[in-house]
Design a protein around this nucleic acid. Structure first.
Length: 122
RNA sequence: ACGGUCGGAGGGACGAUCGCCGCCGGCGCGAGCCGGGGGAGGAAAGUCCGGGCUUCAUAGGGCGCGGUGGUGGGUAACCCCCACCCCCGGUAACGGUGGGUGCUCCCGGGCAUCGCCGCCAACGGGCGGGACAGUGCAACAGAAAGAAAACCGCCAGCGAUGAUUUCGGUUUUCGGAUUUCGGAUUUGAAGAAUGGUUUUCAAUCCGAAAUCCGCAAUCCCAAAUCCGAAAUCAUCGCUGGUAAGGGUGAAACGGUGCGGGGCGCAAGCCCUUAAUGUAAGAGCGCACCAGCGACCGGGUGACCGGUCGGCUCGGCAAACCCCACCGGAAGCAAGGCCAAGCAGAGAGCAGGACCGGCCCGGUCCGCUACGACUCUCGGGUAGGCUGCUCGAUCCGGCCAGUAAUGGUCGGGCUAGAGAAAUGAUCGUCGCCGGGAGCACCGCGAGGUUCCCCGGCACAAAACCCGGCUUACACGCCGGCCGGCCAA
RNA sequence: CGGGCUGUGGCGCAGCUUGGCUAGCGCGCUUCAUUGGGGUUGAAGAGGUCGCAGGUUCGAAUCCUGUCAGCCCGA
């Protein structure tokens, strides 16, 4: 039995202070689709925030981008490391990616970021 | 049916799975769970206007600043909407013209087309008050750019100069000499270093003028020079008149047309009469058009129509400005409430604070101190709720009104997020474009169905409304006008 | 939400207030000369819908209105 694939507001990053804390941790990884910032949050779950600039397009294009990001996070949240805050930033504005591509990219980048947060000596 | 033009409404549908944000009901101490139902637009956009709402004070007067500007309505209000007035633009059609081309014949027309002009359908555009309140602007060109004159020109008179003609008068006509001037030739000299070339001087020849001498010397004719007078013409100057005209320019005290006949030398008189006047020359007279003013009529009004007068006074205020009207400011990050936090300290002032351009004026607190207000400093810091969607609301009927819109009756509740929801992935259908063939219809061009591929716009609430503007794939509907065909 | 600025050759700017004078300056570009060649230098030349649309005016880069794009500031 798989756990529910919900995405309530408690899993959102909201305040500017929370965003600033994640950025100040300065741990980021990226590929052709995404830039991911990460920071430990000492909570029993993972949270996520979205940062989509005006370079993406008008309001319709930005909303579309954020919805795709949220759907990718919702569907793959149980494959991600626990207890970390992520910020997702889009790259490669020219083409709209699919949810499957975003989920695969997000899982890979989240695990890399988690490894960067807790570097194993040796 | 075609063409032109203007406008309106829409702008994917259904289903499955997994999700997001409110609401209602039930269960649960609670976290939460279950069920039901709702969840972007015509422009939500740009933020260009106007309001509601909130706070400042219940938003008052003047100045300043800003805005609006035909008239009459509508509205909570408006840089909005409706109707009308005026001006400008305007294609087709129509009429005119006869420029180009083609065809035709009866050789000059006809027809077709293109061009130009006029009148211009629906329609489009207009920050559409005021230029005898004032200050300004108009490059270049032009005599002159706003005020009436100056200037050119024309006319008259006077003067000067020159030319021609006429008249009158003086002198001369042959030869020689001198001087001056002009021309030609060759020679010589000098300068520029030489040659060439050129300049100057001298010599010779020719012509003209002045003076002198000789001859001739009576008159006439002719010619030439000079002087004087008159006339004409040309140029210049002065004075006076001026009422044609002045190539320019976007624009120059408006434009077009006409001005008869008879007698007489003339002045003048007579006739139909509108037909006069000057030394000369029309801005004179009349008619029409434009404009102005007065009166009459119509319209609530902007304004329109008619008659008369005969004055003819330009443009730009989207230059400053003047007039009329309107506008207090800030904005939901407005504003209100709650919880939490070790919790204050010092100073200033008798007056302080506020009305956010200035002044007047006003309001509140306090008036001799347990208070009000302001400033500074230390520590700490964290937010949450509300405002938040029932409203100039939506749908339908009826009534008033040309319309915008208003009234009334009935029904409905229709998103409320907050790092910000309204979605993601599929399936079926729809629409558009393309492709290939099977089948069917059709003589044929072609059409219908099935199959495959691609596409389906512009754009997302952020307190809420009314407008404006801009963007928009695709089809749908309607109004108005035009000519043609038919009736 | 409120306020302001800019748009002119390929690039960076001036001209706008007060409408008319040739739309100008620097760099760049092209050609020619100079050089064995290049640079430098000199001479000549090309290149501008003045963001777009409409209006006012005799006349608009300039004035007015609308619109598009970009930038900045404040809360």
């Amino acid at each position: 039995m798989s756990p529910p694939l919900t995405f309530p507001k408690s899993l959102h990053l909201k305040s500017p202070a929370e965003f600033k804390a994640v950025y100040d941790r300065k741990r980021s990884v990226s590929d052709g689709l995404l830039v991911v910032y990460a920071k430990e949050n000492a909570l029993p779950h993972t949270r996520v925030g979205l940062s989509v600039s005006k370079k993406v397009g008008n309001a319709v294009a930005r909303n579309r981008c954020k919805r795709l990001f949220r759907e990718a996070f919702r569907l793959s949240q149980h494959e991600l490391p626990v207890g970390i805050d992520f910020i997702l930033i889009p790259r490669n504005v020219s083409r709209e990616p699919t949810v499957e591509e975003l989920s695969a990219s997000l899982v890979k980048l989240a695990r890399d970021a988690a490894r960067k947060l807790t570097p194993r000596p040796g």
